[in-house]
Nucleic acid binder design. Sequence first.
DNA 1: TCAATTGCGCAAACCGGTTTGCTGAGTCCT
DNA 2: AGGACTCAGCAAACCGGTTTGCGCAATTGA
Lengths: 330, 330
Amino acid sequence: MPTIEDVAAAARVSKTTVSHVLSGKRPVAAATQAKVRRVIEELGFRPSALARGLTSARSHTVALMVPDVTNPFYPALARGLQDAVRDAGLLVLLADVGNSGAQERAFLIEAIERRVDGLVLSSFQLTPADLEPAVRAGLDIISVGPQLAGARADVVSADDHQIGADAVDHLADRGHTRIATIAGPAEAQPGAGRLEGFRKQMKARGLRVPESRVVEADFTRAGGRVAMERLLKARTRPTAVVCANDLMAIGALDAARAAGLDVPGDLAVIGVDDIDAAALVSPALTTVRVPAREIGHAAGRLLVDRIDGALPAARRTVLVAHDLIQRETT
Amino acid sequence: MPTIEDVAAAARVSKTTVSHVLSGKRPVAAATQAKVRRVIEELGFRPSALARGLTSARSHTVALMVPDVTNPFYPALARGLQDAVRDAGLLVLLADVGNSGAQERAFLIEAIERRVDGLVLSSFQLTPADLEPAVRAGLDIISVGPQLAGARADVVSADDHQIGADAVDHLADRGHTRIATIAGPAEAQPGAGRLEGFRKQMKARGLRVPESRVVEADFTRAGGRVAMERLLKARTRPTAVVCANDLMAIGALDAARAAGLDVPGDLAVIGVDDIDAAALVSPALTTVRVPAREIGHAAGRLLVDRIDGALPAARRTVLVAHDLIQRETT
DNA sequence: TCAATTGCGCAAACCGGTTTGCTGAGTCCT
DNA sequence: AGGACTCAGCAAACCGGTTTGCGCAATTGA
């Protein structure tokens, strides 16, 4: 690869001049510019972003940390994020860290060392304290989900609490009283918020929630299936179940089918997210739509503003609207 | 952020010594090491990957370019890729470039300037000539799909030709003769290969393929639906359709349902990919499974070997196995 | 006519690491 | 006792850009 020095030599100017031609930060005579540009073209010179970043201490990169890229929620989020930051010249560094706290922390360090400009994370394991090094390193952090709220990070999230409550209302309005829930893993943020909203709204509507009707699972189809099987073993079966995401809801449908139950006759099911698959399963899944792409987009916009220093120091919380989409499982 | 110089000063050694403690490339006395490490800890020093990359001319990053992250095929591929390269210390820079050739080329330039170590791309628009600058820049390139085969890139791909042929066999074996196909966009590689395989096998089995039974669409559900509607307008309707991917096949099912057709009675449908949704639609979609994650993994392994210089110069082609999964639409 | 200004370009320092060559002190061998 | 060798650490050069201060020539203003 030719360097700026090679270009300077071939064009018989100093590398300062080449730099100015590229950046436009100081005027360069038209003739000189033309000559330099021609040489750049001939040599196929491409300035090194590494070298550039060294002086500016910026990498023009934002890191995105997610627990599972194959959960369709996250690609949609990634897409929104990318589209929001691209115009600012930022590219997305993607990390799927699974549910491993160790991997999350390892990636955090990586992000710091790479001098990433910003960080968007949807984390299940991280605590605010874990973010400390990143904050000290000057990274702007956006947490998707309220888990990492506080002085350290902005938050872009759905209103998980309200989502849980809305799901309860939807089912209770249809006469259900024995409503169970398949929550996410205890550490997982969105699940926790939805569970809390579920509990509170059940209480508000005078419905009891025995602990046997609350089971945890990881956010996968298989997890939902296993959890549903457990719920179905109870002496008095629930007539409806609120699942903390669609993947688990689809797993719950698997279990219901295997048990020979009619949905929604014997069992009503509601999910959260509205991934594409929700509309495809049969019966089609009623769900609370969480606009993943918008969340990513909002996170990106917020991040760009932060990086530009255009925002006051106080951290923000952006809640995006969800809506309930009734299909055939309720 | 403290620099290596700050650490050196605080530990009363030269920065050379700090560097050696970090890299282990030259021996450092145990006592000195301990002192340096303590200071690093106290200061929270994290070496800048930018500065490091400047000397090594490596960024420890691989770029992944895809046409649509929200197509579930690609997240799976991304996951496999990440898992394969992580142990080599590489992170994945993701770009969703849509179907825009301009964006593809722009990202290619970005990747070069960032001195990315390797490039994995699934491109519809790029020609081998477009890769020239990247090759000259010394990037190792893996093409997912054979489009960019040649002296410039390794290839990891499914055997698209055979996939098309297998789909034809599956339908012909079941007695279909009026078989249509919904191909991908003409420029799109995987679609072209599958279409070719489709045509050849139809001929081999003595079946005619009037041009009205070949329609193009982009690789989306909406595209598939529109294409299917067109096919259904023909005077003699096809009794079966081969779709170049699952998303389009699902769109075709939408159209069939809208037209009041029974699947597979009036119309058999087969897709390609086996995304999660394929098993979820009703009736469940028969499809040719293409192991996206394995493809990503193979690409990652190949890339790491290339970067390590462990491979002879000759480019490789890795074909991954597909298999036909019969469900309910045939 | 002479000082002040402007336009253009260069040299040198800097960003934060890595790498190379060298030196002084201590150890081993003859 | 003297040479060869090892060990530990340092200074300086280097990677490829950006930024700052300065000099020279031509233009402007009084």
